[in-house]
Design a protein around this nucleic acid. Structure first.
Length: 103
DNA sequence: TCCGTGACGCGAT
DNA sequence: CATCGCGCCACGG
């Protein structure tokens, strides 16, 4: 029952996502890069599906766009606004809420 | 094994 | 600002 090497990557992404503080957001691509895998934005999505308890609502698309499909999009927005995150039209105001990972 | 799919991103139009 | 096209890549049917 050996583990797939990919599982490792998902753990790294999960840890990275957990670092996003309340009231802040990070983009899929930003998370991938911060975790050491620039360009692996799609893998970030896999991590979100694979792990429970992650602050999934704090993950947005490039430019602050809500990318979650269907009704969940509204829930994400509400959760964010609940934390004080503001929007500019349909996108999160990244200038004010984008989280900066430490290097 | 092949092929369509997707909570992506970015440059071009 | 809205769309489109293309690269990317693990998954699942």
């Amino acid at each position: 029952m050996n583990e797939k090497p990919q599982a490792k990557i998902l753990v790294v992404f999960a840890d990275t996502i957990r670092k996003i503080p309340k009231g802040k957001v990070a983009t899929y691509g930003q998370i991938a890069a911060a975790a050491g895998f620039p360009g692996a934005a799609r893998q970030v999505v896999r991590a979100l599906h694979a792990y429970h308890g992650l602050p999934w609502h704090r993950v947005v698309g490039a430019g602050g766009a809500i990318r979650v499909p269907g009704e969940d999009a509204l829930e994400q927005r509400l959760r964010l606004e609940m934390e004080g995150v503001t929007f500019r039209g349909l996108r999160v105001d990244l200038d004010r809420h984008q989280f900066r990972f430490r290097r």
